[in-house]
Design a protein around this nucleic acid. Sequence first.
DNA 1: CGCGGATATATCGAAACGATATATAGTGCT
DNA 2: AGCACTATATATCGTTTCGATATATCCGCG
Lengths: 182, 182
Amino acid sequence: MEQLSATAYVILGFVRNEPRSGYEIKAVVDKSTRFFWAASYGQIYPELKRLSEAGLIVGADVPTGGRKRTVYEITADGEEELRAWLRQEPETFEMRDEGLLKLFFADALPREEALEILRSMRDRRRAVNAQLQSLKDLKEEIEDPFPMIVLQGGLEFTEWFADWCERMEAQLLDSALDERSG
Amino acid sequence: MEQLSATAYVILGFVRNEPRSGYEIKAVVDKSTRFFWAASYGQIYPELKRLSEAGLIVGADVPTGGRKRTVYEITADGEEELRAWLRQEPETFEMRDEGLLKLFFADALPREEALEILRSMRDRRRAVNAQLQSLKDLKEEIEDPFPMIVLQGGLEFTEWFADWCERMEAQLLDSALDERSG
DNA sequence: CGCGGATATATCGAAACGATATATAGTGCT
DNA sequence: AGCACTATATATCGTTTCGATATATCCGCG
């Protein structure tokens, strides 16, 4: 069998404990893993077909009134495939941060405008932190601790990053003073 | 004019102070911005053509022996375009971390194997930290402070992340003990 | 009853990824 | 001098992903 994409395992993970439709998978991804692994409809629906053909999930037609709807459950093979993947060393780690990119080239701006980049970055991280906090607030206590650990990591990360921005802003202000006085 | 991609600005930034070929741009990206903004040949060469046609850079044929070679410089228009972009609020922030994704679904594994994910993540962050440290070591003191600030940020981030992995590992071990004793 | 938003699936062009083809230059080894 | 290997340089191409949108039904609210 072809190597599955990480997005395939996102799907396996989310249909593991309860049956879900493609739409529901997209919704739950957007409320949780999106911060470190996003998925679009253009990935999810074709992937559901592939996983179904491979026998790792099974779909059941559960229409809501007259609108057709297919919910998927994981199979025993799918469970095993998911666990096998979880046991492998994580490979992909990618980051795309336009803020860091702008900061990298900030020498092209007057110093005061360069500082503005750091302030934007800080504000953005704080905003995401608030977003994560509201996610945390509406979550009841559950037996599976891992989603909460990851969410807590997101909270600490955004806090750390925002603080780093402030420290760097202060450092740049200090060095500007040094140059003028010394 | 069409909106330029962030990768276009990476190119503008790197040809700003010295003329560079597409190959050299790829090389310098791979040694610096790759950690928060990667670029492939498939983006760079077409983008060089577009930027050249738009008058934001100019190419000069500077062959090495019999091998043709085009190096690009930024124009006054290109400088202005770069600065205008730097002044805009950063938009894109994306992360894809297969480690966090596996951790998120780690309840599907026995607890001991789940901890192994955190150990892998920690090791990986430490390895990247060492990589960044060696980059830092071979860099002489220069007037532009921003690339070094960003590099220092990468060092602190990888350290923070590795430490977080260790803290979470300890926390999971503790809670496992609690369950057994209480 | 009708409007707007949520549910549900599908698709499609544009962009990005990443691997590789092609060709020449330089470097080191025997 | 001959050879292999790596670096330089540009180009391309199939696959994947993004993200926006088309289509259709359902439900709640006024």
